[in-house]
Amino acid sequence: MAATSREVVDRVLRASLEMDTDTFVNLFAPDGYVEWPYRPEGVPGRLEGRDRLRAFLDSQAKGLVRFDEYRDTVVHETADPEVVIVEYEAHGTVLPTGAPLHQTIIAVIRVRDGLVVSYRDYLNPLVLAETLASVAAAEGGIR
């Protein structure tokens, strides 16, 4: 029997916090996707498929931030058994600069047959834009 949507979302959050790319990506359906509806320029709006997601996480995300903890996590199970909504605050460090990171996130995740088919990540785009700008400045304008 496949895991419940809630169980899959719990695994996704744990893998994300632990920066375990393999586990995170393998929790997605082969054609599953992540979307960032609100994002600064230069950040992709959608990554579809495990290969594209893995490549992005390996090349971009791992070198940008380290998450230390998720706080105030609230998981909402919905009337649709496939859909889970998660609210949380991510606290960590911007790796190239050593600056603290505090990001507020709401994610709408659809799970089918034990795998994520869609993950809409409504993060605060201002925090991401400031993080990218600080890294570019620290690297002498490179990024």
Rank of each mutant, 00 (worst) to 15 (best):
V34C: 11
V34K: 06
E35V: 05
E35Y: 03
E35T: 10
W36N: 11
W36I: 15
W36L: 12
W36R: 10
P37H: 01
Y38N: 02
Y38F: 01
Y38V: 01
Y38S: 02
P40S: 06
E41S: 14
G42W: 07
V43I: 04
P44C: 05
G45V: 08
G45P: 05
L47C: 06
E48A: 01
E48Y: 06
G49R: 04
D51Y: 09
R52D: 14
F56M: 10
L57H: 14
S59D: 13
S59V: 14
S59E: 15
A61I: 15
A61V: 12
K62L: 15
K62W: 11
G63Y: 08
V65M: 07
R66L: 12
R66Q: 15
E69F: 11
E69H: 13
E69I: 04
E69G: 04
R71L: 03
R71I: 06
R71S: 13
D72Q: 14
V74K: 12
V74C: 13
V74I: 13
V75S: 02
H76N: 14
H76I: 10
E77F: 06
T78M: 04
A79Y: 10
A79S: 03
A79R: 08
D80V: 00
D80A: 00
D80C: 01
P81V: 01
P81Q: 01
E82P: 00
V84N: 00
I85E: 11
I85Y: 08
I85V: 12
I85T: 15
I85C: 08
V86Y: 05
V86E: 02
V86W: 06
E87R: 11
E89I: 11
E89F: 04
E89W: 15
A90T: 02
H91I: 14
H91G: 10
